[in-house]
Amino acid sequence: MQFAALVHTIVQHRPSGGKPNLDTAAFIRLLQDTMACTDTATEKRIIRFQHVSDYRRFIQQLPEVPSSSSPQKSIRQMPTIRGISCRLPAEETLECFSGRVWIEKDCKISVHASTQKSIAVEKGIPWGVSQIKAPLAWSTTTGHHIKVGVIDTGVDFNHPDLRQSLSRGINLLNRSMLPHDDNGHGTHIAGTIAAANQLKGMIGVAPRSLISPVKAFDHNGSAFVSDIILGIEWCVRNRMNVINMSFGMKTRSKALLGAVINAHNAGIIIVASSGNDGKRRSVDYPARYPQTISVGATTKLRRVAPFSNRGTYIDVYAPGDKIVSAWLQGKYHEMSGTSMATSHVSGAIALLLAMKPELTPTEIKNIIKRSIQPLRGNKARRTIGELDVMRMLQAVEKA
């Protein structure tokens, strides 16, 4: 059956006086036919069902399709946004489904950092951890028992500075394997948040917090939006307190926004990097969504780093220039990027939550914005500034 004819059969059943019901069986047949089609260029798409009843019927009927022709293995389910991801012909818009499903391209998304150089060894407290005054808080809070989901490239489970700080996490690219890092970025982020090797290595912002590595990014530091959504869903299901998102893209995704809103409504604080384009009035998604805490990067001189996006979309700045942290094979690397700034903020929130676990995402965002340290060379605006852990904890005490 031709694609257009299949679409016609899907929407032909129309209850009296209402919108057409989705003919789920025909919809599954359509997916079968298009996925079996090898002579057309395809691309990854996200399809969201407007009505939960349509989505439920689809999920119920999908396993009933004969296995030889089932598209099941090629379809990834995303329950919290009532969606699926799959490959469809590049020109297909599913226009005939308006009112029943939304479709968008499953875009690529990249981590926000650039590798600078390898460092022989890092001992003690990195400059960024000191600059945000985290060590002054450790007599009061070390982030004990706070769970931070790091959606990234995975983590080096054998790194001596991270061994005490990791839970199993999940590998979304290969569910049968641990989320081992084959890039380095995720290990670097995890080190800044929670490294805990006082005698021989480095110490992160919240050394007793627990990192759950969520591997959504491949060895190139690249992922699809659908992988990020599945990562967010995992974090919600496994009751993370904080999600670190050191990545971004230029295009807006309603599917990703839906997943972010769900996590926010579940009480999870989402910290996202703003991007490394040096733009004054723009930040990347998902940092641009109001449900996240958007982070820009500063230098040792407390100035906005030249590469960092800046402006009104930024909620807080944090150290992001020449940051040394853990790397693959037990090593250390120096990296720069708003990614690095984001991990400082996630660690600071872990310190705060260990003291006051009842705080909501909105309350935490307001506390951080209220307790910033003014930036140097920015006299005109006092509404933006750098993360300051001690001011943050004092703001909670006064509240």
Rank of each mutant, 00 (worst) to 15 (best):
I10G: 10
N244M: 02
E363R: 05
Q116A: 10
H8K: 13
I59M: 08
L359W: 13
R281P: 00
N366S: 08
T383G: 09
R168N: 03
A350K: 13
C37P: 00
R376G: 04
S346W: 02
R82M: 09
A223P: 11
D227N: 15
L257V: 08
H159R: 14
G18T: 15
A287R: 10
R281W: 09
S253Y: 00
I293L: 04
Q329E: 13
A259Y: 10
S110Q: 14
R168F: 02
L328N: 11
S222H: 06
A380S: 11
N309A: 14
A266H: 07
Q77N: 07
Q198A: 13
D23T: 14
S98D: 14
A195W: 14
Y289Q: 06
N244W: 03
A195P: 12
T115M: 08
L178F: 03
E397V: 03
A196Q: 13
H144I: 08
A206P: 04
L6T: 01
T141P: 02
Q329P: 00
I293G: 09
T192M: 02
G204I: 11
F27C: 10
Q329W: 08
S226D: 10
F247N: 04
L88R: 13
R175L: 07
N197R: 12
V304P: 00
G83R: 07
R175S: 08
G128R: 11
L173T: 04
V396Y: 14
K369V: 01
I243F: 03
S68T: 08
A259T: 09
K365Q: 10
N158D: 09
I46Q: 14
K398Y: 06
Q32L: 00
L230T: 03
N220I: 00
M240I: 01
G337F: 03
R303K: 11
N244A: 12
E92K: 02
G330E: 02
G311N: 12
Y313M: 15
L31W: 00
K147T: 04
L257K: 12
F247Y: 05
I228V: 15
I103S: 06
N220L: 04
M177R: 09
I119T: 03
T80S: 06
I193M: 02
R281Q: 12
